[in-house]
């Protein structure tokens, strides 16, 4: 019967909002994004005392055009960190002014992992020059500073290094690198003592900072270069930040139950009316 079909359609239409409203409620839960930026850091250094100035090239592995070129890098120079996409790189050293296509004096590959930092340093005497990849730390124990020493003095083959009276390394050989050590945050005197020379400097080692102290041959004896590898908050606040009062937040939706009962009652009523109509029509025909 056309009329009954019409009634069924109306009942269906009335039920539709219920279905439609149920779906978005179920899928509204949102997840936090977890994508990573996928970059790391690299810095280049020349720490070989008797090696003349060099040009340093950084290539993304397999790419013949250099991503970074540093010209006339002399002993003691440490370039700032460069942020680079994670992946494999080649560091090449050529004599200063040598053409970019010439065979490098030295090259080394570095694998940059996202979120990690590396120092690629030319170390050793010119006769035994090597490129060493150092892993630079990007975390400290709470309230502490991290410090490591690069011994790049050729004149003083072995040095002793102490910070505020505390011996960091009693006999660090030329061209070697000490592991990082955690020290209590302080501004104190750093003492470097060789067999015939010594140097001292006041070095601030703040909590949450990571340092590389480079021992160098200076024009007038030993020198200390304090490199700040990384810095963070001295004290990390506990937990999350309470940065909102909710004035712009959507208000919690009211319970759908009362309206659902109204809808249900309406549907029952319509069904009863419809059935009665159908019966009456059937009785008539």
């Amino acid at each position: 019967m056309r009329f009954t079909r019409f009634v069924r359609r109306i009942v269906l239409l009335a039920a539709l909002p219920m279905l439609l409203l149920g779906i978005p409620a179920a899928v509204s839960a949102s997840a936090a994004t977890t994508s990573s930026t996928g970059t790391g850091w690299i810095r280049l250094a020349h720490l070989s005392p008797n090696t003349p100035e060099v040009d340093v090239y950084l290539y993304s592995f397999g790419d013949s055009s250099a991503q970074i070129v540093l010209h006339h890098v002399g002993y003691g120079a440490v370039a700032p960190y460069e942020q680079v996409p994670a992946g494999e790189y080649t560091v090449a050293m050529r004599a200063a002014g040598a053409v970019a296509t010439s065979t490098p004096v030295l090259s080394s590959s570095v694998w940059v992992v996202a979120g990690h930092a590396y120092t690629v340093a030319g170390l050793g005497p010119e006769s035994g020059l090597r490129l060493q990849v150092l892993d630079d730390k990007l975390s400290t124990p709470p309230g502490k500073a991290l410090v490591r020493i690069v011994q790049a003095s050729l004149r003083q083959h072995v040095v002793s290094v102490s910070f505020g009276g505390h011996v960091l390394d009693g006999s660090l050989k030329f061209a070697s690198v000490s592991p990082y050590q955690a020290v209590s945050a302080a501004t104190a005197t750093l003492n470097v003592t060789g067999s015939g020379e010594d140097a001292h400097a006041s070095v601030p080692l703040a909590a949450g900072t990571v340092h590389t102290l480079v021992v160098l041959d200076g024009p007038k004896g030993l020198m200390i270069d304090d490199l700040l590898d990384a810095a963070g908050s001295g004290t990390a606040p506990a937990g999350a930040a309470s940065t909102g009062f909710g004035g712009m937040a959507p208000h919690a939706p009211a319970s759908p139950l009362p309206w659902l009962s109204v809808m249900g009652a309406g549907l029952v009523l319509a069904m009863l009316g419809g059935r009665r109509l159908r019966r009456l029509s059937a009785a008539r025909s």
Partner: peptide, 18 residues
């Protein structure tokens, strides 16, 4: 017919309220 119409009206009103 009135019962049917009233039922449909109530159901639609419920849906709108929801």
């Amino acid at each position: 017919a009135l019962v049917l119409a009233a039922g449909v009206a109530v159901a639609v009103a419920g849906g709108a309220g929801l």
